[in-house]
Measured scan of single mutants.
Amino acid sequence: RKEMTAACTPRRRIINLTSVLSLQEEINEQGHEVLREMLHNHSFVGCVNPQWALAQHQTKLYLLNTTKLSEELFYQILIYDFANFGVLRLSEPAPLFDLAMLALDSPESGWTEEDGPKEGLAEYIVEFLKKKAEMLADYFSLEIDEEGNLIGLPLLIDNYVPPLEGLPIFILRLATEVNWDEEKECFESLSKECAMFYSIRKQYISEESTLSGQQSEVPGSIPNSWKWTVEHIVYKALRSHILPPKHFTEDGNILQLANLPDLYKVFERC
Rank of each mutant, 00 (worst) to 15 (best):
Y198E: 00
C8R: 06
R201V: 12
H42Q: 08
K2I: 14
T249I: 09
C270G: 15
R1W: 15
T67C: 13
N224I: 09
Y75D: 01
V126K: 01
Q24P: 15
L99S: 01
L155Y: 08
L99P: 00
V218P: 09
K130T: 14
E127F: 15
A175R: 01
S216I: 08
P261I: 13
Q51F: 05
Q51P: 13
N84Q: 11
D145F: 01
G166T: 11
L88Q: 03
E217I: 06
P244L: 12
F140C: 10
G148N: 05
V48I: 09
P168H: 06
L63I: 05
T176R: 01
L260H: 03
P162H: 00
L54V: 03
A7C: 10
P244N: 15
G31E: 13
L167S: 00
C186E: 03
I254W: 14
R173I: 00
T18L: 14
S19V: 12
T5C: 14
Y235Q: 06
Y80W: 07
E268S: 12
N65V: 00
L21C: 07
I254A: 12
I157F: 08
E108L: 05
Q58P: 07
L121S: 01
H232W: 15
S221T: 09
E3M: 11
V178D: 00
L99K: 00
L243H: 08
L155W: 09
N84Y: 12
A94K: 02
D138N: 02
A237Y: 07
T229I: 10
S189Q: 02
K227Y: 05
L211E: 06
V266Y: 15
E188L: 07
H247Y: 09
I242K: 12
G252C: 11
Q56I: 03
S141M: 12
Q56C: 12
E183M: 04
N65I: 00
I205N: 07
S216E: 08
E182W: 15
L88K: 07
I200G: 08
L17P: 07
A53W: 01
V87N: 06
A55D: 00
E182Y: 14
D98P: 03
L23R: 13
L190I: 02
Q215P: 09
Y204D: 07
E147N: 06
L61F: 02
L35C: 09
P245F: 15
L121F: 02
D158Y: 03
D145L: 01
A94M: 04
W52Y: 04
N28R: 07
M196C: 02
T229Q: 05
A175C: 15
R13F: 15
P168L: 00
C194I: 13
G252P: 02
E185H: 04
P162S: 00
K184V: 10
T112H: 11
L153N: 00
T66F: 01
L211S: 04
P162N: 00
I200T: 11
S141I: 04
H57A: 09
N84K: 06
A237G: 10
V230K: 05
P223E: 11
I200A: 11
A237Q: 10
N49S: 11
F44N: 03
Y62K: 02
G148F: 06
T9F: 11
D138K: 02
E231S: 14
H42I: 11
P223K: 08
A7E: 11
D105T: 06
C270P: 14
P10S: 11
L102D: 12
E250Y: 15
S43M: 10
S141R: 07
S91P: 02
F197K: 00
E123H: 03
T210P: 07
E3K: 08
A55G: 06
A83P: 10
E134S: 03
L260Y: 06
G120W: 15
P107H: 09
L35Y: 03
D105A: 14
L174W: 00
E72L: 06
S22K: 02
T112V: 05
I254T: 10
D115T: 12
L243Y: 08
W226T: 06
K2R: 10
E71T: 08
K2S: 14
D181V: 05
P245G: 11
S240E: 08
N259I: 03
Y204P: 06
H42R: 12
L243W: 14
Y198R: 00
T18G: 09
N16I: 14
K184G: 04
T5I: 14
G213S: 07
D251V: 09
V34F: 11
S206L: 08
N28C: 11
K130W: 15
L39K: 05
E113V: 02
L129N: 01
R12Y: 13
L23D: 15
K132N: 03
D158C: 07
T67M: 06
P154W: 00
Y204Q: 07
L21P: 13
Y235E: 05
E72C: 07
P261T: 03
T9E: 08
D98F: 13
F128T: 01
V230S: 09
L63D: 01
C270Q: 15
A122Y: 01
L69P: 00
V87H: 05
Y198S: 02
L88M: 08
Q76M: 15
Y124T: 02
L172Q: 01
E29V: 13
L190A: 02
F85Y: 11
H40L: 11
Q58S: 06
G166W: 08
P223I: 05
S22F: 14
G31Y: 13
K60N: 10
F170R: 00
E29H: 11
T210G: 07
E71P: 00
F248P: 10
L167T: 02
A237W: 13
A7R: 13
T9P: 10
F97A: 03
F170W: 03
Q51H: 13
P95Q: 07
A6R: 12
G46D: 02
H57K: 11
I79K: 15
F248K: 14
A122D: 00
Y264T: 11
L96K: 00
K246N: 11
M135W: 05
I222F: 06
S191Q: 11
F128V: 02
R239C: 14
V87F: 05
N224W: 10
S206E: 04
E250W: 15
L129D: 00
A122I: 09
L90Y: 01
V126D: 12
V178M: 01
G213Y: 06
E183H: 04
L238T: 11
N179C: 06
T67E: 06
P117K: 02
K227M: 06
V45A: 10
A55P: 00
I144Y: 01
V178F: 01
L150T: 01
L23S: 09
V178N: 00
L54S: 09
S91H: 10
G152H: 09
L61I: 05
E92P: 13
I233R: 10
L164S: 04
R201P: 06
Y160N: 00
F85C: 08
G46Y: 01
I242G: 14
L260S: 04
V48N: 13
L260C: 09
L104W: 02
I222E: 12
Y264W: 03
R201G: 13
P50D: 09
E134T: 02
I242D: 15
H232I: 13
E147F: 12
E25S: 14
N179F: 07
A100P: 00
N65D: 06
N179M: 08
A53E: 00
R36I: 13
G120P: 15
P50M: 04
L88F: 04
Q76K: 08
D251I: 15
A83L: 02
M196W: 05
E185I: 03
E108N: 03
